[in-house]
Design a protein around this nucleic acid. Structure first.
Lengths: 208, 196
DNA sequence: GCTTTAAAAAGTAACTT
DNA sequence: AAGTTACTTTTAAAAGC
């Protein structure tokens, strides 16, 4: 009896120690990634469930916390790429992605395919672009999706291309380099995507 | 309309075996250091990997040879190529004085193939309606689907092309492509390539 | 889990020219 | 901006860390 109590106590304290450490990591990453409070809270819920299910055993707390954050971002549609999250940890993108898939499967978390439209505000705000540019960029992506020309493309690259086109059309021109930088993709990707979008949607860009 | 699409995808799917991975068992142990010193074009770095690497040019294949006498042969595009490669490897070893007495036991472990159903695929819709599938364009452009029967994994692209892997028998490849084509058609995830 | 092999798909990335 | 090369994903086995 006493033994069982001791064993349970030991397990509980280890879970608590793990949680305490994980929450510290979550605090740090939330600050560095400027995560909204609801994302942070959801990530904490996900992590707690992961610990209770014993999913953290044999894995680094940091990788699982990072994966929980990514899962929370996806659930709440707050755009954060796996790469930016990984940038703030010692874990590799690959390792975090593996933990993310595990969390989705084991905790029955349902996530929709990333919507490139969700990335528009971040890019536009970082470049001080107007709301009308954002509106126009969103419309471009809506039309592109209905035409099925966005399949398989990186949502960040699509959003960057749409913002580039919308900014050009609105006279609030930004360079491909600036947009690529804030979107976290290369100039080549912005160029490839915007050319395809313009072609498929029949958009004529002002000559540069 | 629908029947036309059905005719298109049911008769047009093409498949091609791209790589066969097999294990070969020679019931005897091998001295990898001896092989490395006698056979040209081999690589053996035990601190990096326990197997000795031997590349064949003709059936363009690569063999990983272990001291236990077991080996892994990769790169063959047909069962015949695989058999030819194994015969050639043994002949090569014998040519350099390595005694091989037992007849090799070959076992196919994995078949990788490419396929094409000749219709565009709405991956977002498929990811939503197809069980056991994952589509993360942020990470990889293809939708990953784990099929239960046959038990293979498919990497499906919007172009209608795909990769089938995990098959143990050549027939599973075609069956898998036929299965997925029908399922995608039933889920209304296909868009014919040529109109009319 | 990792290490090594091969191969396709399509997108993205990092260098050269 | 074009071209190359290379990495992302998936699969399986071998012996050993």
């Amino acid at each position: 009896k006493l033994r069982r109590w001791q064993a349970r106590s030991r397990i509980q304290s280890s879970i608590e120690r793990n949680l305490a450490q994980a929450m510290n990591e979550l605090d740090r990453l939330s600050d560095q990634l400027n995560l909204p409070r609801n994302v942070k809270e959801e990530a904490a819920r996900i992590y707690r469930r992961a610990v209770e299910k014993g999913l953290v055993r044999g894995r680094s707390i940091e990788s699982v916390i990072a994966a929980a954050i990514y899962a929370a971002c996806r659930e709440l549609k707050i755009p954060r790429t796996l790469d930016e999250i990984a940038k703030h940890t010692k874990s590799s993108r690959k390792d975090i992605a593996r933990c993310y898939r595990l969390l989705l499967k084991e905790l029955d978390i349902k996530v929709q395919t990333s919507d490139p439209i969700d990335f528009i505000p971040r890019i536009a705000h970082a470049l001080n672009l107007s709301g009308s540019v954002m509106k126009k960029a969103a419309e471009i992506l809506h039309r592109a999706r209905s035409l099925g020309v966005t399949a398989g493309n990186d949502p960040a690259g699509l959003a960057a291309a749409a913002v580039y086109i919308a900014a050009q059309l609105s006279g609030e021109r930004r360079t491909q380099k600036e947009i690529a930088h804030v979107a976290g993709v290369t100039e080549v990707t912005v160029r490839n995507r915007y050319k395809e979008l313009a072609k498929e949607l029949g958009i004529d860009l002002p000559t540069t | 309309m629908v029947t036309d699409i059905k005719r298109e995808i049911d008769l047009r799917p093409t498949t091609k075996i791209e790589n066969i991975v097999a294990t070969v068992i020679l019931d005897q142990s091998l001295d990898l250091n001896l092989i490395e010193s006698r056979v040209p074009n081999v690589s053996y770095q035990p601190d990096q990997f326990p197997g000795l690497i031997l590349r064949l040019e003709k059936p363009k294949t690569t063999a990983l040879i272990f001291k236990s006498g077991k080996m892994v042969v990769t790169g063959a595009k047909s069962t015949q190529q695989l058999i030819d490669a194994v015969k050639k490897i043994i002949k090569l070893l014998r040519k350099y004085g390595i005694k091989i007495v037992s007849k090799p036991r070959i076992q196919i472990q994995n078949i990788v193939a490419s396929g094409d159903i000749n219709a565009y695929i709405n991956l977002e819709r498929a990811a939503y309606l197809l069980e056991d599938s994952m589509y993360e364009p942020e990470q990889f452009p293809g939708l990953i689907h784990r099929m239960r029967e046959p038990r293979v994994v498919l990497l499906i692209f919007s172009s209608g092309k795909m990769v089938i892997t995990g098959a143990k028998e050549e027939s599973e490849v075609e069956t898998a492509v036929r299965n997925i084509a029908k399922k995608l058609l039933d889920l209304d995830c296909l868009l014919p390539k040529k109109s009319e």
